[in-house]
């Protein structure tokens, strides 16, 4: 069972829809008992970092997620803010992240690029330096849809799954073992987005 974790941070309909489009069913839930039964987890999210962590705490989901992801090694895909939560902390807030991947979330520093506007919004190229089940059948580079002002910086290059250039190169997808996160929105990225979601469901 694919469970989309609902922690009241944004509209989850488009993720349900794309999963349906690639031929699977999913459940949207904030219920610990449902999350416990998941075989795949998706952690979406749009909004602010601290609010997201606070909501996860208030819904008492952090313990259950740690159990599923760290102990049982259930594959999880973080999307956008959901990816950022996988890191240690964010310059956007004061609260610690889930800390599953050794990464910091930093604001775009684009002072030397006055022509670039923040948020980084629109379609950009995603480079895939190494093969990974999540990236199967995706061309290098692929194009995905982004909307964000903060980005991940991995301490170890081994955690970098994809890279994107916006003023400078940043880590647009990160991973560690069964934990994966993408900064872009696969659910809004047409063909390549469908392929990535299909890969997560079938190969990861």
């Amino acid at each position: 069972m694919i469970v989309i974790v609902d922690y009241k941070m944004g509209n989850l309909g488009s993720i349900t829809n794309i999963i349906k489009k690639v031929g699977y069913q999913s459940v949207v839930s904030s219920d610990v008992e449902v999350i416990k039964k998941a075989t795949k987890l998706i952690l979406p999210g749009v909004g602010s970092f601290d609010k997201a962590m606070q909501n996860l705490k208030e819904l008492e989901l952090i313990g259950a997620l740690n159990e599923k992801v760290i102990i049982q090694k259930t594959p999880i895909l973080g999307i956008c803010l959901g990816m950022q939560l996988l890191g240690n902390y964010s310059e956007e807030g004061n609260v610690s992240g889930l800390g599953w991947i050794d990464a910091e979330i930093k604001k775009f520093q684009l002072k030397s690029f006055p022509e670039l506007k923040v948020p980084h919004m629109g379609w950009n190229e995603v480079l895939i330096p190494n093969s990974h089940p999540l990236c199967e059948n995706l061309p290098d580079p692929s194009r995905f849809y982004f909307v964000h002002s903060y980005h991940a910086v991995c301490k170890n290059q081994t955690n970098v799954l994809m890279k994107t250039h916006f003023g400078y190169d940043f880590d647009s997808a990160i991973h560690e073992d069964n934990i994966m996160g993408v900064q872009f929105h696969p659910e809004k990225s047409h063909k390549f987005g469908m392929q990535l979601i299909k890969n997560f469901i079938e190969k990861c």
Binding site: K21, E187, K188, S189, G193, M194
Partner: peptide, 11 residues
């Protein structure tokens, strides 16, 4: 809007 969101996956 709901139908469009179901059918297309671009913003």
């Amino acid at each position: 809007v709901e139908v469009i969101a179901k059918e297309i996956n671009i913003p």
